[in-house]
């Protein structure tokens, strides 16, 4: 059995490159299924990083302007063109993969297995449903299995390998969609889904200005910043900070929830964190039921004090 792993390609420092953390975690899952070929599609991509992933037997590089912005239609056509001979098509469960993989699956007339959190065998997978309130085990009868991997559940594969790199030519341009612009915030903070520590703020922060307090605590701890949906909807934090059922899933060593009540949709994105700290003025807030350490306090006093004493 040979597996095609689609590398996550992000814009890094003005160019495009493989997001090694997400791809290495998906590699760990993919390697349980068979020999792995990694596809790197983008503009100006090299495949050098992907070639170091332990478990990669070969890296395929599709370097073409057509793939510069991850548009679903051309990427899906490329993958479907390469799909013959693969038993599984796998990608880390990122926004880009969630956009493209269901399209690939439908073109192959197979179901998609999104957000796989456990691999039982080559046909059988576990995935959370109902915001993680249940874990379903499903067996696929499809000829090709198309799955996205919930990266929080897998360790990153080592980067000590040296797989051969092969260029693959681009598929045609379906001409269905075009790129207009990206609004991507550059930040020196660790990336949310791979950070070892995360500090998240909720509606309790009360304003965009005061959200800076959460960012200061994050910086003191060397943490990434997250947010609840309510904080994002209220304009305190950008959309890509949202943690939860319909946002990002994180599992850091330390997760600090500030002014977050603990709705199930939020818990879905962070309850696999190793140590959870909750700061909330309401002692009955549901977040305390899953927190390892709970502090009932006014965040406007506790957060600056914690920031100062933890730095």
């Amino acid at each position: 059995m040979t597996v095609l792993l689609i590398a996550e390609v992000s814009r890094i420092d003005g160019g495009s490159d493989v997001n090694m953390d997400a791809t290495a975690k998906a590699m760990t899952a993919a390697a349980q299924l068979g020999e792995v070929h990694v596809l790197v599609a983008g503009e100006g991509v090299t495949g050098d990083g992907a070639a170091t992933l332990e478990g990669a037997a070969k890296v395929l590089v599709a370097d073409d302007a057509l793939y510069a912005n991850g548009l679903a239609e051309p990427v899906a056509d490329l993958v479907v063109g390469l799909a013959g001979g693969y038993s599984h098509i796998v990608a880390p469960s990122t926004a880009a993969a969630k956009n493209v993989l269901p399209r690939i699956a439908a073109l192959l007339d197979v179901m998609i297995l999104p957000d796989v959190s456990g691999i039982v065998d080559a046909d059988t997978f576990q995935r959370p449903i109902y915001a993680g309130n249940a874990i379903q085990t499903v067996r696929s009868s499809d000829a090709v299995k198309v799955l996205t991997i919930r990266t929080a559940g897998f360790e990153a594969a080592a980067t000590t390998g040296s797989a051969p790199i092969e260029a693959v030519s681009a598929a045609g341009d379906p001409g269905l969609s075009s790129f207009v612009e990206d609004k991507v915030a550059e930040s020196d903070r660790p990336e949310l889904t791979s950070a070892g520590r995360v500090v998240s703020g909720g509606r309790g922060i009360g304003s965009e200005e005061d959200f800076a307090m959460v960012e200061k605590l994050a910086d003191a701890l060397g943490a990434a910043v997250g947010a609840s949906r309510a904080a994002v909807d209220s304009g305190y934090a950008p959309n890509d900070w949202q943690v939860g059922q319909t946002g990002k899933v994180v599992a850091p060593e330390l997760y600090v929830a500030v002014g977050i009540s603990g709705a199930i949709q939020h818990l879905a994105g962070m309850k696999d964190s190793k140590v959870i700290v909750a700061i909330n003025k309401d002692e009955d807030a549901p977040i305390f039921q899953i927190a390892d350490y709970g502090l009932v306090a006014d965040l406007f006093e506790a957060v600056p004090e914690l920031t100062q004493k933890a730095s």
Binding site: T94, A95, L176, D182, K183
Partner: peptide, 13 residues
């Protein structure tokens, strides 16, 4: 579109 790094704007026919 809400994507991992922020927002992406595309045009579709």
């Amino acid at each position: 579109r809400e994507v991992d790094g922020g927002l992406q704007t595309i045009r579709v026919g």
